[in-house]
Structure formats: structure tokens, C-alpha cells
Amino acid sequence: MDVAIGHLDQSEGAPASPFLAADVGGTHTRIAMVRASHDEGRKVETLAYRKFACTDFPGLAELLQAFVDADVRIPVRHCVLACAGQVMGDEVVNDNLAWPIHLSQLRQALALDDIAILNDFEALGYALDGPLAHSGRHLCGPDTLTKGPALVIGPGTGLGAAVHVPGSAGGFVLTTEAGQMDFAPNSIREREILAHLAPHGGYVESERIVSGPGLLTVYTTLCALDGETPKLATPEAVTAAAAACSDMHAVEAVDVFCASLGSLAGNLAMAFMATGGVYLAGGFLSSMFALLERSTFEERFLHGRSARALLSQVPVRVTEHGRHGVLGAAQWYLRRGMSGEATTHHAVAGGLTA
């Protein structure tokens, strides 16, 4: 099976011909036909790009084939996927994916020589060595680019995070399972939410609160705590009602979500000494930027006492996911190289953005 379990040596040659690069999310899959750029200022050249809704297709093979049929005019033999989940034998498994991914079936269906896989947030981490570092809107901290490790976090269908560590040849990226970290309540109300979700104690993961579905969970929990029937059924409806101040539980749910995101981001920034900045990625956060801006995110991000001195110097930006995951995956693929012979695949883990 031409997939891998570790990074490839740079001595192995990357394909000179165009290849497919896809960022597979729980809601959308973004895919491009790319090749190495001859422009020294750009690492990857995009020849074609599309964004698909995952629910429109019975599987990833059919989705990728639709892109090939519409936009690809030459044989394509190589593919790199940025995807969350765990590689279990021949299958990529994640609860947030629209469908299971069977690697050998995918390779055979598209007549590929090889498929390389990396974590979806690892791909975003590599994109920080490019346009992602200069994109988005400033949320808090210094409004300048700073040096040091940079953290990218994305609450979408799930919650993912990765850290880009600068160095020679673009540095390297550390993946995390931040979405699976224990949720740590800060306020009395958050303790009530935790007690409702785990009435007998036990583990409640951060993405149960800090994600799109998590926002809806917080909203319905707050309604239950106050003995009321929820009126809203989607995360988008909750954010819209919060923006319009038309539902007090929606307003409170967004407050809890933003505050919890701030605490988590601050914890991770301290853990990785992310002096290079924190990037909050995804269309979900971008769509609620005004709510995030006037929330207690910054106060919770800064924590207190000695941590505040460090965290106050960390710039925080909100950026659209967009093509960055696709480009980051392509950059990783070109950097690591891929031979036409059987190779090993990079293990996949972590959260997933919409």
C-alpha cells in the first residue's frame, strides 16, 4: 500500500508533475490541482481549486473524481490528503467525518500511484510558513508579526490545533489532540454546565464545548438548567440569535463558548510558548468575529499573575480556513518528497474544521 507512517526524507524526490491536494473536513472538502512553483516567492502554484459539501457525495472517492472530471485534463498519479482521524490499518476513522475513508479503495478508484496523509491542522501549521501568517483580522495582543512558535486552533465540526516551530527550511510542525483535552470550567455557570454533561463525574473533552456542535450543546444545556425548551437547532442559529440579542440563552452560550476558547488558547499558548502568535482558523469563527471581539475571550486568554506578562505579548488573529489547509498539505508533500515506489504514510490525528 503506497501510503505512509512517518515523514519522508527530503532526499526523496517530489513529483515534478501536478498532483492533487485536498483538505478533508467534516462539512466541506477543499481540493486543488497544484504543482511546485517556479516563482521563488511562492512554494506552490494552484492550477484549479474547488470547495465541495461532503454530504453531496457518497464517499471521498466520488468527491475527488468529480473534481478530476471537472478540472483535470492530464493524468494525475499523486495525491496528498490533510485529514483528521486515526489511521486504523487501511481506514481513516474519525467521528466527525462524513464517511469512512478506505485508502486502498481510494487509491484504486482514482488510479493513483500513491496517497500521502497528514493531519489537517499539521497542514495549517505548514501554511503558517506562507500566506496564512499574514491573513485574517487582529483580535487582541500586538498587531504585529512576532518571532517564535505559532499556534493554530480551529473549532469547527471538531477542535484541532497544531504548532509551527520556526527553523531552517521552514521549520517543523507539532500536531496535538487539543480537542480531547479535559474541559476546565472557570465560572460557577461553567461548573453547572459540566455537572449537567457529566452528572456522575468523569471526562468531558474540550471540543464538547469549544466547537460548532459544542456551541449548540452549551445552548441546549443552559436551556435545560433553566427549565426551558430550546428554540434553536443549529450553531448558526445560536450565533445569529446572539448577534440579534433575541435569545438570552444564545447570548450566554456564545459568551461561554468564547470564554472557554480563550482559556484553552491561553493554556496552549503557555504550553508551547507561542510567542509567534495564535491563529484562530475557520469560517465558523470568522462569521462570529464581532461576537468574539466583544466577548471575554481576551481576559480569559490572558489568565492572570505572571502568565499575563507573557500572553499580553502574543498576537491573536482570526483567519478564514480557506485554501490554507490545501496549500499547507501541498507544501508538506513537496518538502518531504514522495517517490513512485511504495512508501509509508504520515499518521493522522486531531480535530477537524468545517
Rank of each mutant, 00 (worst) to 15 (best):
L110D: 13
V210A: 05
V173T: 14
I188G: 03
H196M: 06
N186T: 15
V210C: 03
V163T: 08
F121D: 02
V218R: 02
L110N: 10
L174Q: 11
V204F: 10
G125L: 06
M181G: 04
T175E: 04
P142V: 05
I209G: 12
V210I: 14
A133N: 08
D114V: 14
G154F: 10
P166I: 10
P142F: 07
L159N: 05
E205K: 10
A161H: 15
G202P: 03
Y219D: 05
A150S: 03
L174R: 07
H164K: 09
A116N: 09
T175S: 13
P213Y: 03
L194Y: 09
C223V: 12
K147G: 01
Q108R: 06
A123V: 13
A198C: 12
V165S: 04
V218G: 01
D143S: 03
E177R: 13
K147Q: 11
D182N: 05
L194I: 10
S168Q: 07
P131Q: 14
E190L: 06
R191C: 14
I153P: 00
R208D: 15
E192I: 01
D120A: 02
G130M: 01
R107S: 04
R137V: 13
L197G: 05
L159C: 02
G214D: 15
G214R: 11
Y203K: 08
G125M: 07
L151M: 06
L194W: 12
D113V: 08
L216K: 12
G125F: 10
A116R: 15
G141W: 04
I188L: 14
E177Y: 12
L215K: 15
A198S: 09
A198I: 13
G214A: 14
V218M: 03
L151Y: 01
L151K: 00
G156M: 11
P199C: 05
G125T: 06
I115M: 15
V152G: 02
T217R: 10
A127F: 01
L194K: 04
A109G: 02
V210M: 04
T220H: 02
K147I: 12
H138M: 08
E207M: 14
H164R: 15
G212C: 12
P149L: 05
I209S: 11
N186K: 12
D129A: 11
C223F: 07
D129P: 04
L110I: 11
R137W: 12
L194R: 13
T175W: 02
D143L: 00
A123L: 04
E190G: 14
L112C: 09
P155M: 13
